[in-house]
């Protein structure tokens, strides 16, 4: 770890020198480089966002003239008039809290395994990534069979091992954990991001640990995790944002059932917006989620200063 502090010191001495004039130009050059993205945000995101915020305070039903109703939509959400709101929020939170850490751990673990020198690496990597490529419209059929309580493969295995059988997605209590389990099949994307991150760790860092007599656990704790912390951070944020917006599984496989056990937030929102045509109300539902996700992200960014290590930022 010594070499790191050394480079940091060296960096400071250089930045004090004549580079300051270049830095000054960065101010407008930076804006310019970011301009397409900022412009894109203003055109494609900001407009629709403001529109939906305004609609969330109307009784808009699509194609009818929206009437301003103030905060009524929000009141109806929170005062319990709409029994689905808290239910779906609970279901979604449960899913997020269960799935995000699991997905990160599994993906990280797989990435480490697939970063080793093993025979047939191409095969293994492709195999682990494959589930993310197959469209759910096709794979949902497999899942429905696997989860069948009577004839499904999972319960056949459970029976053979004398383990308790489960109703999987067909019971109110097990549907969310089952969908979490299923989501582990598609960690391929997260895994690939980790792989790209792991690749950038120079070998000599590990060699240094080996010379000091460290074992695999030391390597993991002192090299791998700190140096991939930006990637871990990224995947955690994306996991939260994605987890809160799970839609396809309930839409294709469970339709929110049984007994609203998988009434995910976006599914509930989508139903309000497109089945019940309550677009104004749906916008209010969306904005509540927006605030929730923003809070989560904000907290994560806050804590990130303690555990995310950027080589490029002198700290």
């Amino acid at each position: 770890m010594q070499s790191m502090t050394e480079t940091a010191q060296r960096r400071q001495t250089i930045s004090k020198s004549s580079l300051s004039s270049i830095r000054r130009r960065e101010n407008w050059l930076g804006w310019l480089f970011a301009a397409p993205a900022i412009l894109g945000f203003i055109i494609f995101v900001f407009g629709p966002m403001i529109a939906s915020l305004w609609l969330s305070m109307t009784d808009y039903k699509v194609a009818s003239t929206p009437h301003f109703v103030g905060l009524e939509n929000y009141r109806n959400l929170f005062n319990g008039t709409d029994a689905f709101f808290y239910k779906s929020l609970g279901v979604t939170l449960y899913y997020v809290i269960l799935s995000v850490p699991l997905q990160i751990i599994v993906a990280f673990f797989l990435a480490i395994l697939l970063n080793q020198k093993v025979k047939g690496l191409t095969f293994f990597r492709t195999a682990f990534y494959l589930p993310t490529i197959v469209p759910l419209i096709a794979s949902s059929m497999v899942w429905l069979w696997l989860f069948d309580p009577d004839m499904g493969l999972l319960n056949i295995i459970m029976r053979a091992l004398h383990l308790p059988e489960s109703q999987w997605i067909y019971s109110e209590t097990t549907v969310v954990p089952t969908l979490v389990l299923m989501s582990l099949w598609t960690v391929g994307g997260t895994m690939v991001i980790f792989l790209a991150g792991l690749k950038d760790i120079p070998d000599h860092y590990y060699e240094a640990i080996e010379i000091d007599g460290g074992n695999a656990l030391h390597k993991l704790l002192y090299i791998t995790i700190p140096l991939t912390s930006p990637t871990i951070f990224f995947n955690t944020i994306m996991g939260f944002i994605g987890g809160f917006q799970v839609f396809v599984q309930p839409y294709v496989m469970t339709q929110g059932g049984p007994n609203n056990g998988s009434l995910f937030y976006i599914f509930y929102l989508f139903r309000e917006a497109f089945t019940f045509s309550n677009m104004g109300y749906a916008c209010a539902i969306a904005w509540v989620l927006f605030i929730v996700i923003m809070l989560f992200t904000f907290l994560l960014f806050r804590t990130s200063q303690k555990w995310v290590y950027y080589e490029g930022e002198g700290r």
């Binding site: 689905f84 109110e172 929110g256 059932g257 049984p258 007994n259 609203n260 139903r271 089945t275 019940f276």
Partner: peptide, 13 residues
């Protein structure tokens, strides 16, 4: 549609 969204989950049981 909304009424069905209440009845159907009950019938699940």
């Amino acid at each position: 549609e909304k009424i069905s969204a209440i009845i159907n989950p009950a019938l699940d049981q």
